[in-house]
Each structure stands twice: as structure tokens, then as C-alpha cells.
Amino acid sequence: MDRKHRSARRLGTDGWTPMTGIGVGSGGGPGGTSTVSTRRRYRRLLFGSVGLGVAANVALRLLSYPVAAEAAYWVGIVGFLAVWQFSPVQLFDERDAELERRASTLTLVAAAVVLVLGASGARTLGALGVYDAPPFVEGVLYGYVGLFVVFAVAYGWVSWTR
């Protein structure tokens, strides 16, 4: 038995399987199918499904087939969910989670800057009579407020459950 097989067996007999929560899915490991290529294929399917659904939705709406457009959109969404749910391998690993966490933080910072400057600016300009922000802008700002409310609730929930 070569080194990699011994190594894998040792992991197994220690009662510990590497990365079960975030990396390894079925079908990988020594002697198994290629987890890396399978993961790549399923990730393409995952994003391709929703991408095609959205593209078909836009195209069909432009061609004045609104019902078919929504049907195509939902086929894409269902495809996404199906791949996500039934993929034989883990589609994302810990680095993906770290990237997602950092991107989320940057998104929140950008939203906070827009909300703080936008809300204050709109109020100030309105009070000075220089510019009255249209309801659309107000709606966008309330949307950002909603985003932070959702974040606060999610943060509280995660803190409570961990």
C-alpha cells in the first residue's frame, strides 16, 4: 500500500475524517472519482443553471413572452437548488467561506457608507430647500435600513445558536 493510502487509512482509524463539514464529499479520496473535477463540474452547473434561467428570462421578456420568461427563470432557480441539494460533493470549502465572509463585510461597509451619507445628505438638502429627493431615493435608503435590520437579526440568531 502506498503512502497516500496509508495516510488516508490512518485518518480513518483515528475516527476522524478530514474536512467532512466543509470539504470532502462522497466520491473523493484515494481510489475514488476526482472530487476536484466533480466539484468544478457541479459548481458550473450550479451557477450556469441560474445564469441561463436569468438570461432566458430577459430574452423571453424582450420577445414579449412574459409567462414563458418566468417559467424559464424558475427552471433556472429549481436547477440551482437541485444541484445545491443533490450534488455528490461539497461545492464550497473553507476558503470559499472565508472569501464570502470578507466580501460580506465589504458589502456591509459599502452599504453603511451609502446609508450614512445618503440619508444625511438627503435630509440636509431637503431642509435647506436645495433638493428634494424623489420617493425612489427614499425607498432605496429604507431598503438599506432593511438590510441592516436583517443583518442585526441574523447576527443575533447566529450568536445565540453558537
Binding site: K4, S7, A8, P18, M19, T20, I22, G23, V24, G25, G28, G29, P30, S34, T35, V36, R39, Q90, D93, E94, R95, D96
Partner: peptide
């Protein structure tokens, strides 16, 4: 190696 430890090659 990625396959052995169950992560992506990028990791």
C-alpha cells in the same frame, strides 16, 4: 493534494 484533504486546488 486538494483531493486528498478535501478542499479545492485554489485553497
Amino acid at each position: 493534494l486538494a483531493e486528498e484533504v478535501g478542499v479545492t486546488r485554489q485553497t
